[in-house]
Computed example of a mutant assay.
Amino acid sequence: MQLVVRKGETRCGDLASCVKAAARIGTLENSAASRLLADLGAVALLYDSQVTPFEDLQLGRLDALLLDVPIVRAFLPHWPDLVAVEPPIPGRGFYAIAVRKEDEALAAQLDEALAFLAATGELRAILERWGLWDQGQEELLPPGFSGSLAVSQGSSPPAGASPRRLLTLALLAKAALVTVALSLASMGLAVLVGLGVAVARLYGPGWLQAGALVYVEFFRGVPVLLLLYLLYFGLPAAWAALTGTPGLYISPFWTAVVGLGLTYAAYEAEIYRAALQAIPPTQWEAAASLGLSPKQTFVHVVLPQALRLVLPPSTSDFVALFKDTSLAGTITVVELAKQYQIISTSGADFRVLVEAGLITACLYLFMSVPVGHLARRWERRLASAR
């Protein structure tokens, strides 16, 4: 494994100093590097592709990368502002070709092909071309090379290869807390912005009404995933192009909050607008006859009545938002669905994957069902207060 930093970086002279400085370190999910960072208690951001970590390091979202040496050697030349920290972190790792047990003929053919490439020197030439040939490669090619690669049929995975159930449950519970925090923050933003947009559409001057209408149509028409990509990748790139300097950094979590909040605000605005329009004009007239100003009438008379009407549809939106937080996993937020994806691609036992899937589904239910229950109680309470 090798550490990669931006040129001029002073905090991350090695992995230990990175961890001590609580630096944000990017790596690939379910890799040896991700497990090492977890063991060290480092601030790790997990990716499912090789290119995006380099982009985020370039833009300042990350302080360092920890990746396999072949990945660093292949991609680093395309990023002149990044540099590898030498030497690579000590340790041995192996890349292997896996086949099904019944495909013995295919395994033998692969062994013969590798042996032929090694014997002719072509394997060494390929690895040297990519800067990957070293003494460690030679140690893999002793006499009897072909047979040494084959794995005996009777071999079995080492003990503890499958994730422990308690660890799986702990990871999912932690990710569920991220989902709850993301949902609450996004819905809070959606309520505030949505109410403002609804009021602007109903009571603002003509230009403000037109702007509010454009907002609603835009954010209802643009997919949430596309908006998250634009905010997370496009906005920093645009900033760098306009100013010539990278540095516009928004954390993945708050990027997701903004993206989801602005999108759901468009839906909330239409709900609030319909609820406000449903209040009879006589309420305004009665309040005016009592000497209330328009602002007082709106806050103390109209808005409380509209609240009873918006509660059911807004609750449905909140439950839907819980599920849409899964889109935040595409910008490295490890929420509940993303954590299950990581577990499901970790090579765990099939039974563990099924159990983890059921636990994930139950956690979503435990988060969403109480919301509906509380909303119904609040609705009955408001109805009894009439």
Rank of each mutant, 00 (worst) to 15 (best):
S314C: 10
L141K: 06
H373P: 02
V72A: 07
L353C: 00
F116L: 15
T243F: 07
P236V: 02
V191C: 05
V257R: 00
S183W: 00
A306P: 08
A118K: 09
L40Q: 14
P246W: 14
A107W: 04
P205E: 06
L327W: 00
P281I: 12
P87V: 01
T315Y: 06
Y340M: 10
F145K: 00
V151G: 12
V19N: 09
S146C: 04
A42R: 11
F54H: 00
I359W: 12
A16K: 13
L66G: 02
R273I: 10
R351N: 13
I271C: 01
F116T: 15
A181C: 12
G247K: 11
R100W: 13
A16N: 10
W284L: 15
T330C: 03
V214C: 10
V51S: 07
V178E: 12
A98L: 14
A212N: 09
I342C: 05
F233D: 11
L177I: 13
P80F: 00
R6D: 06
Y264S: 01
R220W: 00
V83H: 14
I271F: 06
A337N: 04
P70K: 01
Y215N: 05
E122W: 15
E139F: 15
L290R: 04
A125I: 10
S314M: 13
I71F: 02
K101Y: 10
M187D: 00
Q137T: 08
F219E: 00
E102D: 05
V301T: 04
A275N: 06
A266F: 00
R377G: 12
D81Q: 10
W378K: 11
L230G: 01
A266V: 02
V191K: 04
V258N: 01
I25E: 05
A238Q: 09
L290V: 02
L336H: 03
C18L: 13
K323E: 00
S326M: 04
G188S: 03
Y272R: 14
A288M: 09
S146T: 10
P142G: 05
H373A: 14
T282K: 09
L192K: 09
L276I: 08
L45M: 04
Y215V: 03
L15A: 04
G154Y: 07
S186T: 03
V199Q: 07
L57A: 12
I89M: 03
Q109C: 06
A74G: 01
G372D: 08
V369N: 12
P158D: 10
Y95A: 10
V224G: 04
R377P: 11
T345Q: 12
G211A: 13
A256E: 06
D317P: 02
I343N: 08
R376N: 13
P312D: 05
A288V: 01
Q277I: 09
I342D: 04
G41W: 08
R11Y: 03
S326E: 07
E55K: 14
F253N: 02
Q137I: 11
D56L: 15
S34K: 06
Q296F: 06
G144F: 13
V151N: 14
A266L: 01
L248N: 11
S314D: 01
F233K: 06
L195H: 08
F318W: 05
A98Y: 10
P88I: 04
Q341I: 07
A119D: 15
L66Q: 03
R386D: 15
S31N: 07
D134M: 06
P223L: 05
G13K: 10
V302T: 05
K7R: 14
A150R: 12
A237I: 00
N30M: 09
Q209T: 09
A385M: 02
E112H: 12
L40P: 11
A383E: 15
